[in-house]
């Protein structure tokens, strides 16, 4: 169970505090997939980074297994929560394998030696993401889609209950989008992991997610896709004359 209570996200710049989203509250049972949606600049990435503890929260509390996340140590948190960000500012000397093995970082000793268990886990992850043939290539020789699968694999190797992903299908073609979304669904279903991801792919989010969190003008709206799709807030986000909601297919369509 992952719970967020009255969370306010934002930045502190000098003496000024800029609030981005206020009073976010929701609860997610294990195995849920939460899609965080909203327009550009609505605060999706800020919220995701705050949930991942990469940005300090301005207010509120995050709970995992009924205990506040701030009560866990840094290494305990790394065993509860893994992240896939949009940052690609990696050293070019890394291979896919180097990145995957870093997933075992919170579990192995000070010297980072892989145990037989670590190796078995990594082998299973490589099979799951289907990267057997490419895992030893330098990452700057991989396509965006292949690198994204490696990064998701790294989060999987970290064996956390929660995986947070920032726009996991950004810059991917339809084929790789499908692969990544399918991979996420399998992870949630088979391994009962809770996934949270920020996305612009609203139609895919409606099909894939068990819950949605919509961010609009500093407020957050939480619900199931079915309920939230009919909510008047969606009309504000997508004006009828621009994007129409088709109730039969439960999908949004652009009005040309």
């Amino acid at each position: 169970m992952f719970a967020v209570e009255n969370l306010t996200t934002g930045y502190t710049a000098g003496k000024n505090t800029v609030k981005v989203t206020e009073e976010v509250s929701f609860q997610l049972p294990a195995g849920s997939i939460l899609g965080i949606i909203g327009r550009n600049g609505s605060g999706k990435s800020t919220l995701l980074k705050t949930l991942a503890l990469l940005l300090p929260k301005l207010k509120g509390e995050l709970y995992v297994k009924g205990k506040s996340l701030s009560d866990y140590s840094v290494s305990e948190r790394a065993q509860l929560l893994s992240v896939v960000t949009t940052s690609r500012n990696f050293s070019g000397i890394l291979t896919g394998w180097d990145i995957l093995r870093l997933g075992r970082h919170p579990h192995n000793g000070w010297y980072g030696k892989l145990s037989p268990t670590d190796k078995t886990i990594l082998k299973e992850v490589i099979e799951k993401i289907g990267m057997e043939n490419l895992v030893n290539q330098l990452i700057n020789t991989l396509s965006d889609g292949q690198l994204q699968k490696i990064l998701i694999g790294r989060a999987l190797a970290q064996q956390t209950e929660l995986i947070l992903l920032d726009e996991p299908t950004n810059h991917l073609d339809l084929h790789h989008k499908a692969e990544v979304f399918r991979l996420l669904k399998t992870i949630a279903l088979e391994q009962n992991k809770t996934l949270l991801f920020a996305t612009h792919e609203i139609n895919h989010a409606l099909l894939l997610c068990t819950h949605l969190l919509l961010l609009h003008e500093g407020k957050a709206f939480f619900g199931t896709p079915k309920v939230l799709a009919q909510d008047p807030i969606m009309r504000q986000l997508f004006p009828q004359e621009l994007v129409a909601f088709d109730t039969k297919s439960n999908q949004f369509k652009i009005c040309f």
């Binding site: 980074k49 790394a78 180097d98 997933g103």
Partner: peptide, 15 residues
């Protein structure tokens, strides 16, 4: 080794 992926990733991996 963790820092080769950047500070955010390193932090999320318990560094």
């Amino acid at each position: 080794n963790g820092l080769l992926m950047g500070e955010s990733y390193a932090k999320s991996m318990g560094v």
